[in-house]
Every structure is written in structure tokens, then in C-alpha cells.
Amino acid sequence: MKSSVITFPGSNCDRDMDVALTKFGFKNKMVWHNDQELPKSDLIVLPGGFSYGDYLRCGSMASKSKIMNSVINFAKSGGLVMGICNGFQILVEAGLVPGVLLRNKYLQFICKNVHVKVDNKENAFFKNLDKKVLEFHIAHNEGNYFCTNDQLKEIEDNNQIAIYYCDQNGNTNDQINPNGSIKNIAGIFNKEKNVLGMMPHPERMIDESLSGEDGSIFFKNLLNNIK
């Protein structure tokens, strides 16, 4: 299976993502933001980082870069696109997933492990996953998911909420909400479920001795789903 990771100026999780995808069997290519065309891919990943120094709004400049026209066309034709952290911010700015990511509620950069509940498994990203709660890592300043009431209704009606911040038993409540996101939303799909944006980093959980294994579970399952 072929994947491509887009590198923007200021991306800093692109190589981690490359390591993770390669480790679990993807043939991965790195693509520069100024390129016009994507290599043939089964999965496109927009990685975490601080593209364009987070100027104006996080992800806003990167969402207008040359390669994004191809990414948008790829997504619109049903291709799988995943945006992690800054990649999620780029996806919302590009209009590929609804809503927006605001500054964290308590104005602090948050860097810690969190648990997320997988709500919707009827999609290529989480289908057949045998765990309901995963432990991932978050590191962000703007992860406070926000959308209008109308958008929220549409998102809920279409089952577009991918993952929620929760405790280790899968309970979601205000106390374990790290950043003030509406409904504890940590990740969201587009209507067709082929585009996933999420704040947590699965690529930081691929080595038991360094961090954890839930990222490994996620990537192995993803590869099997795409095959």
C-alpha cells in the first residue's frame, strides 16, 4: 500500500509519520508542499507541526499551498486523507472537514498522553479495530474544536465524530476534556468518512519501550483495512 506525507515549511512530525507508516508496511513517499502533483497513493497524510509558523491562523497558509489543490481533488474523488494535529488544522482551513480549531481553553500548550474513545467504526480508518479506547499523545496550543450549532447538528446526524477525549474506561466528561473542545471532540470525519482530522498523534505511540502500542494497533488496522 502506498502513502504520501506532505511536508510544509514548519512541519515537524512528517518524519515521525514516515517512520510509523514504513514500520507497518506502507511504501511511503515524502511530498514537498510546492509540488503540484501527488504520487500514486492509497493514503495521504498531512502531518503535525507549525506550518508557516502558525501565522494568521494555524493551518491557514498551508491550506492554500500548491499541493493542496491535488489533495483536495484526491479527497473529493474518495481517496483517504488523514490530518494529524497541524494537519487537522490544515484540513479545517481547506474546508475538507467542518469546524475550526481555537486556542486551548486555558491558554496553555498541552503536551501529554490522553485516552480517546473511538465512536464510529464504519469507515476505513477504524473498521475492525478491536479496542474502543486508545491511548495517544497530544501536543498542541490550538486544539479546541469549535463549530456552529447548525454544523454540530449536521456532524452528529451524519455520525462524523471520529474520536472523543475520554478517561481510560471510555467515559467522556468535562473533567477529562484537555482543551475545551465542544463535546470532547478529538477527531472528526468529512461526510463521506474518507477524510479524518484528529489532534492526537498515533505516530508517537508505535514503540512499547518508548511510549505505547496503541499507535501500532491503529496503523496495523489501517493497513489491513486499505489492503
Binding site: 494568521l56 491562523r57 492554500k64 482551513e93 469546524g99 475550526v100 463549530c147 454544523q151
Partner: peptide, 8 residues
């Protein structure tokens, strides 16, 4: 198109 995000 760029300067404002009309969602917020």
C-alpha cells in the same frame, strides 16, 4: 478567502 475564517 484567507484573512478571516467565517466559521468564527
Amino acid at each position: 478567502k484567507l484573512l478571516a475564517n467565517l466559521v468564527i
